Simulated scan of single mutants.
Amino acid sequence: MLEYLTSLNDHNLPYPDTIHPIVVHFVIAMVLFGFIWDVLGYFTGKTQLFEVGWWNMFVATIAMFVAIIFGQFEAGLAQPYSVAKSVLNLHTLVGWSLSGIITAITAWRYVIRSRNPQKLPIYYLGAGLILTLIVGVQVYLGDKLVWVYGLHTVPVVEALKDGLLR
């Protein structure tokens, strides 16, 4: 049994495939939908949509830390070659920064919700727009790691094992 826990597969992982992208796509969706529901509630006057936006941000905040845990673990197993290292380092930095930003915005959203659940300041929507843009940058960096540099893909893992990439 221990051999299954300590051996790495052809993706250089101890489990069948990467988990970080699965969890992180959930976070991306929750942040984007949280922002969309808040904007819709603000401009339509349907304040019950603010509650949907709040719960999206709350769940995104929790899921963000799960994404970071798996991201750090899988990044450590990725054995990035020199060209990919700078993108991976930037992706890591932005990811950790996003965890703080999302947590702060969610805390702010909680205070707003506690004071008056029927109103949302325009400044909060501005912060949500900035958050959405930062998430877009992070998506770009993550896509680049997979689709350009091929981290945790079988051909790249094999090339690393054969010493073809450094």
Rank of each mutant, 00 (worst) to 15 (best):
N89Q: 11
R115L: 10
G150Y: 09
L120M: 13
I68M: 11
I134P: 00
Y124E: 10
L77H: 13
Y15N: 05
F35I: 00
A107D: 01
G95W: 00
W54C: 01
T103D: 02
V83W: 05
V139K: 02
Q138F: 00
Q72E: 09
Y123E: 05
G128Y: 11
V87R: 10
G95Y: 00
F65K: 03
L125S: 08
V135D: 07
I112F: 13
F43W: 15
V87E: 04
L129F: 15
E158T: 03
I112G: 06
M64W: 13
I102L: 10
Y123H: 05
K119S: 13
P121I: 09
E51F: 13
V146T: 14
D10R: 13
R166G: 07
V157C: 05
T153C: 04
W96I: 02
G41P: 01
N56Y: 11
V27A: 10
H11D: 02
G128D: 07
L98Q: 06
V52W: 11
I68T: 07
P117C: 06
G100Y: 13
D10H: 14
F70G: 04
E158L: 12
V87A: 15
F33C: 11
L129V: 14
G34E: 02
A67L: 07
R113L: 04
L141R: 11
S99I: 00
D38R: 10
T47Q: 11
V24D: 02
A29D: 02
W37K: 05
L93P: 01
V59N: 04
A75H: 12
I22W: 08
Y140T: 05
V148P: 00
I122N: 05
E3V: 01
G126H: 04
V148Y: 13
Y4P: 00
P117T: 03
L164F: 09
